[in-house]
Design a protein around this nucleic acid. Structure first.
Lengths: 210, 210
DNA sequence: CCCTCCAGACTGACTGGTCAGTCTCCCAGC
DNA sequence: GCTGGGAGACTGACCAGTCAGTCTGGAGGG
């Protein structure tokens, strides 16, 4: 009785172990960085074994990359959904920033990995990282180019502006990771968005200014 | 004859070796990162020996920290001098940004170490890093607070704005490190400064807008 | 001047610890 | 009784740091 409920099927169990390893890895990597972490830390934290870890992943490096890529995919999806719900350029920018900030707030460990550890990880990691950043740059740049086309802002180096925005957002999140300020991170949303928008010459939407 | 010229005195030779090790270390660390670099790389690049390296430095970590601290001291001095020469708030902000950008341009390897590798280095390195960043934040925040006091800009979270500025500058330099764009880096100066100033509600000085 | 001798800069083979990844064995479920 | 998921002891490469020894400039005595 209740077999189907209290027991996990093999497939479920399998998924479970894999996810547990990944979650523990996120914790460990975010605390000690990639090089400071030892595979045995992940083994211990996940309550599994080295055999299990190397059954699901080819290498320590691949664990890290899986973590980052799965998170990036999730965020990309959230971004797309958020932007889809928004009408108007400014609202879309606001939605993008809000989605990023809220996601980092909800996933502190992954935020640290993506924003801090990933940067300085070896050359093997850089390709994926730079490509993903370029994607986000393209999105932001698209908004800015449209604003220029619509005559809402003056012509300018929109690519650089996109990098500036990303740098600004990252730094604010990194401050939160390092110092805990502000708690909750979400508090930066209104002032940060205002700063970003006015840097290129846009005004925040009335709704978001409170 | 010419003994004094062609031969180095012991003290000079000593300084020379130390500097050579430090310069090679900057190169090696900037290419491979802290963890990817092996002390023997530095030995090889500097044309000295492991003994020499450990004669001048206690550890690999200390080489890294010496590098960063000496560079930070140089930049701090340059910043102070540049600001001292400038009259007016906006001019001082412009001088600060210009000094940072020019210094990074002139010291690519050190820029990479400070902006990229230092971030993700182990916990041992974080104290110094966060303290130094906080110093720069205080300087920028000082400008902004004065601007608020003088009624030049609206009251706002000036500390966050300072972090935003630092993040923006870093990211632009990191893009240059990764992609080489723009060459020379200095080209970002005018548009970047304009972006930063207008983010808080200031206008660039007429001289710098060209 | 020249020679002696020493401090201290420098060399590089070596060591000891660490850790990613492997291998063998085991067990639960089919 | 067989198979696939898992346990954990083990291996070997790697590398920070050591140390016993060499070399050299130059101070001081003759």
């Amino acid at each position: 009785m209740a077999t189907a409920i209290e027991r996990l099927s093999k497939t479920q169990q399998r998924e479970d172990t894999r996810r547990k390893i990944l979650e523990s890895a996120a914790q460990v990597f975010s605390e000690k960085g990639f090089y400071g972490s030892v595979v045995d830390d992940i083994v211990k934290a996940s309550g599994t074994s080295k055999g299990a870890v190397y059954f699901y992943f080819d290498s320590k490096e691949q664990i890290f990359l899986s973590l980052v890529e799965e998170y990036a995919a999730t965020v990309a999806q959230q971004l797309q959904a958020a932007v889809h719900r928004s009408r108007g350029l400014v609202a879309q920018v606001e939605a993008t920033v809000a989605t990023l900030i809220r996601s980092f707030q909800a996933n502190r460990a992954l935020a640290k990995i993506v924003l801090v550890d990933w940067l300085a990880a070896g050359a093997e990691f850089q390709g994926t990282r730079i490509a993903l950043k370029a994607m986000l740059v393209e999105v932001l740049r698209g908004y800015l180019d449209r604003a220029v086309q619509d005559g809402k802002i003056a012509a300018q180096d929109t690519e650089m502006a996109a990098y500036v925005w990303i740098g600004a957002i990252s730094e604010v999140v990194i401050r939160w990771l390092n110092t805990g300020k502000p708690t909750p991170l979400e508090e930066v949303l209104a002032p940060l968005t205002r700063l970003l928008l006015s840097s290129v010459g846009l005004a925040p939407s009335p709704a978001a200014s409170g």
